[in-house]
Amino acid sequence: MISAELLKQLLSLAAALFLLTAFALLAQRHMHALLRWFAVQGVLLAATTALVAYAANVHELYISAFLALVLKGLLVPWLLWRIVIRLGAHREVESLVNIFATMLIGAALVLFAYYVSLPIQELSFVVTRNIIAIALACVLIGMLIMITRRKAITQVVGFLALENALFFTATAATYGMPLVVEIGVAFDVLIAALIFGVFFFQIRSTFDSLDLKHLEVER
């Protein structure tokens, strides 16, 4: 067993690293790097879950850690990477707003999340509201990725990052959701990734491009 203080510090560290990966996703220009960071985020999530499982001695959580590692750390990034290669879309990620500006907005979102979570009382004996603030910020950043990127694949990555952040919140703040729910969600994500893949091919074959502006009504 590890002491409560050390667990708290380790969780803080994990939260900070999670925030870092969220920003890394926000900052990437290259599809390849983007997916790599996404995989890193998945592995980090798995590690955090395993840590919580060990600290709280909840064996079910090992299963969700394993699921996170396999699905979010490996399978989904790999699937997306294959789609990217087959679509030939692995060039630069196009962004609507310039990268530095989005990152500044991201920093502002962190502040906002902190502000929002200030009134929240402590939820469990070890985790403070501060980790919730970080996790909330990561959710918001996931949305920011979806808003500011032009290509469909990056939007999906944003969506998945958002989902990762929710998962992280659940693990860190409440020691995970019930196992059934988690397995369900995990497979949902996998299915979603597959369906997105199908959509990509459809979008591309219809418009000859993955740029989402083609989905808008021409005026």
Binding site: L19, L20, A107, I131
Partner: peptide, 14 residues
Amino acid sequence: LLAILGMLTHFILE
């Protein structure tokens, strides 16, 4: 930005 984030994590987490 990393430095600002570090500053923010300092205030939020530490």
